[in-house]
Each structure stands twice: as C-alpha cells, then as structure tokens.
Design a protein around this nucleic acid. Structure first.
Lengths: 231, 231
DNA sequence: CGCGGCTTTGATGTTCATCAAGTAAAGTGG
DNA sequence: CCACTTTACTTGATGAACATCAAAGCCGCG
C-alpha cells in the first residue's frame, strides 16, 4: 500500500514555479487543502486502467510507466515518465476513466489534486489554463514523437534509441542502471524479450556497451547514434 | 494555390456550438476579424513541417492528413482527420514550428485564426480554456490510441482495423470510397504498398470485401472484426 | 530447498519488405 | 485528341528480419 505523506504546503512546493507560478496564494491554498501526496514502492500500481478519474495527478519524484492492456494478452508500455512529464494529464480532461494503468518503476512520490478543484482553478484563471494547455500539448506531442521514432525503426535502432535516450535525457551520463527489466523494455518498444537480450549482447560483443545486469555503460555513443539513424 | 473564401461571421459558424459556445459576442468578433478561410484542392499542402506557427487552424470541411518526414526517406502519416478532429491543435501550444505537414486528402476548407488572438481569448476566458483543453486532450488521446492499435497488430489486422474504422467511424456505411491511395494507406499503417494491395486482394478472394478501384464494400464485417482482434 | 520470475543462447519457421516486371489509369504537352 | 510520361496498382519470387519455441542457468523469496 502506498504511504501517505505529510504534505508540505503547495506554495512551498518545488514544482510551483513549473506550473503553478501564476496562481494566487488563495488558489494555491485551495488546491493545497484538496490534495494528497503518496509514496509508492517499485512495482506498486498507482492507478488501474478503467478506474474512474477523480484526481489530477503528477509525479514529484521517481519514475513511472504508462501501461495499456489489450484483452487478456500482452501489456504494452506507452511511455515512461520522470517528474515534470506529468503523464497524469493524459486523458484526464477528455475521459472519465483512466485509459491506461500507471505503475511505479522506481520508488516514486505522486501528488493527487482533486480534479474538480483543479478544473475550477482553470476556469477562474485563464493564464494558468494556457500553461496547462502548453504542458499537456508538449507531453502528448512527445509521446507521439517517441512512438513514431520507435515504431519506424528496426530492432537494433530501437534499442540504440532508448539507450541514447536514457543516457542523454534521463540520467545525463553514460553509465546508469536501466530502470526497466528486459521484458519491460520489450513491452516499451514492441519487440520480444529474447531479441532485446540478443541485441544488447550483440552491442556488448561489438564493444558498444558494457553490461552488468541492469548496469549499463555506453562505450561508443557515436556508434549508437549511427544505429539510431540507420537502424 | 488555395482559394481564399468570403468568410461568414464566426457567430454564425456551424462550429460555434462545438467549441466556441462559451464565448461572448465580443470575443467572437475579435476572433472573426483575425481569421481567414481557405479552400484547398486534393493534395494541396496546407502547412509544411518546419514552418513557423502563426495561426491556430481547424478543418471546416474535407479530409486532411498529418505527415511526418524523416530525413530524405519515407513519409509517415500520423493520422487523418475529419472536421472536429482539429489536428491543428497538436503542437500549436507547445511548439513554435509545425512538427508535421498537413495536406488535403480531399477538397477541404480550413479556418485560420490568429494564434495570439486565440491565446488571449483563452487567457481571458477560463471556461473556454477548459473546453479547448478537453478537445486537445481527446484528440491527442485518440491519436495515441490509434497508433497503438495499429502498431501492435500484424498486417492483416491493420488492414482490417482501418477498413472497420472507415466504415463505422468515418462513412457510417459498409460501402465507401477509400480516400487514400494504397501507398497512403501503407504510410498510415507502417507497411509496404505491395502488402496493402496483397492483403486487400486476399480479403477480396475470401469474400470479406468487394473492391472496385477505390470503392470498397464490406461484405463480412464480423470476419473483419475477428481479424482485428486476432491479427 | 524449491518455486517462479528474470535472463540468456540456439534452432526453427513465419511474417514481412524488397526486388522485379507488367498492366492500368491519369496527367501533360504538342 | 493522341502520343508520352508519370503515377498508381497488381502479382510473383526471394531473402532478411523477427517471433516463437525450447532448454538451461541464475537469483530472490517464502
């Protein structure tokens, strides 16, 4: 079960400047009294596909994945998100039920804001509304972009792409722990688990990366980027 | 070159009730004097990927496609849109340049509203803002959904899926003219033109559809839906 | 200690893109 | 309006890319 945290006031939140900067103190207090902060362990489910949406939620710390199930079959990871990529945004304003599940990939802290209260704030503050609009627009665009980048490549290119992505956009270094299992990577980039492993091994043999379990070190980023372009 | 139309006043526009219902007459007049309506012929380009975004645009009549180019290579169709699926929304609020090209697939009428004027309206009218938010949210969601439905299926399933989509969601009948060439279908659902043709022929031989050029008649929708699920 | 989930490698067959080659349809210029 | 060119459509043959199956080692956990 997620641990409910003692929440600090919204007007002191580190995220204030990123989205809530244009709110008055009164508006912040209003959001504040109608919010909950919860901590999730790795693999804990935050929301289930199909559940009713009651809150607007965003990620304060950690890493989560957005999962879609089809029938009884495989799960597909639509995207993974760090703080500031408020994936909670998605569907929130157009659906009354979650279209995807959200699961913590690392220990994560999520902030839940009552959706009706937030909608009211939007109605009352157009400047805030425009900022939310810009954010949601960017996030959606990024996801569409990502899916296209992945789906048009072949397998080597896909693996190269996410390795470069993790190194350059998530961890900002060439040596990092892959937060996803091989199976999850497969679900994220639409291929079989076996081939994820096979291609990682190939890269290892070609001295492009070093592997030790989930610890990855990129040795030849240039080669990876070339594979991104031509894979 | 697109023909510039004599535009009727926004407050008499058939689309008013769909999005602009919560605007005051003054706000509508403001949008009205800052808008242009243009008619495009089949295959005419509305905007080019990379162009600066100056206007918010939406489709009044016709059918358009959203195209992404990568390098010198193939074109990929991200989605096609009828009126009300204001694809113009995408990127408009998060980017200053178009991330995709828009091309008319059938003769189409587009309405261009000055983006700064629209943004001002959003800032001043939170209720309107929330409606725009709901719309953009829905459109993005639909695109992500569509791409997932397509990319996780194999070829027969993909073809089945778009045939059912056109029949049930676009034309509302089992006999219709496919608005896309075989090549465009291939670009939309990420496969080779040859295989689009091959699978359509297969469906014809199995008496699932009847084909006469771009005229398609679905004879066995149940079978198509089965292929959607298991393809 | 044994069980289940994750990882790894090899072998096999299917799915699919690509190449080739030809027909039909649709523009284009004289 | 007809020859010419281009674009769309179609079918078959071939090989590459990929999923799937099978088997075995590994690790954490009850």
């Amino acid at each position: 079960m997620p641990e409910i945290l003692n929440t600090s006031a919204c007007n002191k939140c580190a995220f204030r400047s990123l989205l809530f900067d244009n709110l008055t103190d009164d508006e912040l207090i209003d959001l504040n009294v109608n919010k909950v902060e919860k901590k999730y362990q790795k693999r804990e489910i935050v929301v289930q596909q199909g559940e009713k949406i009651k809150e607007f939620l965003y990620l304060k710390e950690g890493l989560i994945k957005l999962v879609k199930k089809d029938g009884m079959e495989k799960e597909h990871i639509i995207s993974i998100a760090r703080p500031l990529n408020f994936i909670g945004f998605l569907s929130v304003f157009s659906n009354d039920k979650y279209q995807y599940s959200i699961t913590a990939v690392e220990e994560s802290v999520m902030c839940f804001i009552d959706l009706e209260v937030l909608k009211n704030t939007i109605r009352n503050n157009g400047i805030f509304a425009l900022e939310v609009l810009e954010k949601i627009s960017k996030i959606s665009d990024d996801i569409i972009q990502f899916r296209m980048m992945i789906d048009r490549r072949q397998l080597r290119g896909r693996i190269a792409y996410i390795l470069v992505m993790f190194a350059k956009q998530v961890y900002f270094k060439s040596k990092f722990y892959l937060p996803l299992t091989r199976k999850e990577i497969a679900e994220l980039i639409d291929m079989s688990t076996e081939n994820v492993i096979r291609i990682l091994s190939e890269f290892r043999k070609d001295d492009i990366i070093r592997i030790d379990g989930s610890l990855i070190e990129i040795l030849n980023i240039g080669q990876l980027e070339r594979l991104c372009r031509f894979g």
